[in-house]
């Protein structure tokens, strides 16, 4: 293809930058209706809202590279969010889950525990996939229920029975929801956290054996095994990293919403998976980039945000979102279709 001159090269250009073109077209459409849409405030809102989903998507993306998926990401996030929220309820709140905590804990302890819990669930998934040779779809379908059950039990174990975990420590809330001004715009901390996680994942994917081998396994498992790649170890590694990201996302999400219930995390994995897929992480495996995942998540959030912004009827929102996802992926797969 590459050697054909003329028309095919701009076709290729269109294909390669299709995601950015879609994003651009979306924004132009919105601006036509609401010229005020282009404000730094809207920009920082969109990025902040995309942050926790984005971090979750960064974790799920690795599993999609393996031609797998993770249906349990949302519920795992729920469990970890409940852990961080319960440990960081305001110590003056009478019906807090742990009345024994009378001095505020350092934020890092609940963060680490949230990460730990997420890692445990991710390793169950990894075990099912790598050792029991189950399809990730199936194993995570099971894990998802286990995580939901654990979440309900945990929330129900409070002295007054099941009630939302709220009244969070103000330090926690401001550490998550705070922001600072740089020059012309106000930058929420959430955006910084997303940036840090993205940089971390970019290094993992591009600069470590773990990431390189992950792509090899996703692209051609036989070639990878013949080249001496330890497939099982690699899978555990990738799921471990995903666990870290889920934990961080959960910690931030609890602080962002400021209340955790049994419904927290429900269907978050679908947004994360859609983001990855829009961003060109292929379900056929072995393909994907961190900037792609970020763009995918941001496109999704721009769709959400602008549909709210334009006040589109809620039911049409679903239809439009569905159409845009199909369109984005339909264009994206053109890159890889082989002809016979």
């Amino acid at each position: 293809m590459a050697d054909l001159p003329g028309s095919s090269s701009w076709k290729e250009w269109l294909l390669n930058y299709s995601l950015y073109i879609i994003l651009g077209v979306l924004i132009i459409i919105v601006v036509i209706y609401e010229p005020n849409f282009l404000s730094t405030r809207n920009l920082s809102n969109i990025l902040a809202q995309a942050s926790t989903r984005g971090i979750l998507a960064l974790g799920v993306a690795g599993m999609i590279v393996y031609t797998g998926t993770d249906l349990s990401a949302g519920r795992i996030l729920g469990v970890s969010a409940a852990i961080s929220a319960s440990l960081l309820q305001s110590v003056t709140y009478a019906s807090r889950m742990y009345p024994g905590i009378t001095e505020p804990l350092p934020l890092v302890i609940p963060l680490l525990l949230a990460i730990l819990a997420a890692i445990v669930f991710c390793l169950i998934n990894a075990f099912g996939f790598a050792v029991l040779k189950m399809h990730p779809f199936i194993i995570s379908l099971g894990t998802q229920l286990i995580a939901y059950g654990a979440l309900c039990l945990y929330i129900d174990s409070q002295a007054n029975g099941a009630q939302p975990l709220a009244s969070l420590d103000p330090r926690y809330i401001s550490a998550v929801n705070g922001s600072f001004d740089i020059g012309f715009m106000n930058l929420p901390y959430l955006v910084i956290y997303l940036a840090i996680c993205s940089a971390f994942m970019w290094v993992i994917w591009n600069k470590t054996t773990l990431g390189k081998n992950m792509f090899a396994i996703g692209g051609n498992p036989e070639a990878a095994a013949v080249s001496g790649v330890n497939v099982t170890r690699n899978i555990f590694g990738v799921y471990f990293v995903a666990g870290i990201l889920y934990g961080i996302a959960a910690f931030l999400e609890a602080g962002r919403v400021q209340s955790v219930t049994t419904a927290t995390g429900l269907n978050y994995e679908l947004d994360a998976i859609s983001g990855c897929v829009i961003g060109g992480v292929s379900f056929t495996g072995g393909v994907g980039t961190i900037p792609g995942v970020l763009i995918g998540v941001i496109i999704l959030q721009v769709i959400n945000y602008s549909l709210y912004y334009l006040g589109v009827n809620a039911y049409y929102q679903y239809i439009i979102k569905g159409l845009i996802i199909i369109l984005a992926v339909a264009i994206d797969v053109r890159k890889y279709i082989a002809k016979k």
């Binding site: 009630q163 709220a166 009244s167 962002r256 419904a263």
Partner: peptide, 28 residues
């Protein structure tokens, strides 16, 4: 509730004169 929070951000940004809220999670 997370979705509702996002929607609230947009409403405020659009300069609504008043907001009526039916909380998903009243504790939030």
């Amino acid at each position: 509730q997370a979705t509702q929070n996002d929607q609230l951000d947009v409403m405020i940004e659009r300069g609504m004169d008043g907001i009526i809220v039916n909380m998903v999670d009243a504790q939030a």
